[in-house]
C-alpha cells in the first residue's frame, strides 16, 4: 500500500505547515495548510516564500480544495502542492489536473488502483492547471 504519492524531483520540504491565519500573522513560515473555508488568494502575495502548501480534504465530497489548488497554480506557485485528508484514489487524475503534485491520504492507496486512476483518461476536455492539451486544441491545433 502507498502511504503517499509524490510527483516531484526535489526533496520533501522539511517544514511543518501552519494554518492560514498563523501564516498571515507571522509571514516567515515556508509551509501552510489550507482548510476548505480558507481563501487561497490571501496567500498570493507570499508565494515566493512558500515551499509547501497542504490542502486539506476533510471529506471527499467537499470540493473547495480543487479551486484552491488551481488558484495557486494560476498565480504561478511552483512549490509542492499536497492533498491531504480524505483523498479519493479514484479522483487522482482530477487532483493532478488541478495542480496537486503530492498526496498524503488518510487511508493508504492501493498501488494498482492509484496507477489505474492516474492513467484513466486518454484525453481531457478542458484546459486546467496541468500541461495536458485539451481535446479542442488537438482538434484545431494552435488556433486555440
Amino acid at each position: 500500500m502507498l502511504d503517499y504519492l509524490r510527483f516531484r524531483e526535489d526533496d520533501t520540504p522539511d517544514v511543518s505547515a501552519v494554518t492560514v491565519d498563523a501564516f498571515l500573522d507571522q509571514t516567515n513560515a515556508a509551509a501552510v495548510r489550507i482548510e476548505p473555508g480558507d481563501d487561497a488568494r490571501q496567500l498570493l502575495p507570499h508565494l515566493e516564500q512558500l515551499r509547501l502548501v497542504e490542502v486539506n480534504f476533510p471529506s471527499f465530497g467537499d470540493g473547495r480544495g480543487y479551486s484552491s489548488a488551481r488558484i495557486l497554480r494560476e498565480a504561478g506557485y511552483q512549490g509542492e502542492l499536497r492533498a491531504v485528508g480524505d483523498v479519493a484514489v479514484d479522483q487522482l487524475s482530477h487532483y493532478r489536473r488541478c495542480g496537486f503534485d503530492s498526496f498524503f491520504p488518510d487511508v493508504p492507496f492501493n498501488p494498482e488502483d492509484a496507477q489505474a486512476a492516474l492513467d484513466r483518461w486518454p484525453y481531457v476536455y478542458q484546459a486546467a492547471a496541468d500541461a495536458r492539451a485539451p481535446i479542442w486544441k488537438l482538434r484545431h491545433g494552435d488556433q486555440g
Partner: peptide, 11 residues
Amino acid sequence: QWSSFHPEFLT
C-alpha cells in the same frame, strides 16, 4: 464537453 469530467467541479 467542457462540463464532462471537469476536474475542478466534480464535487
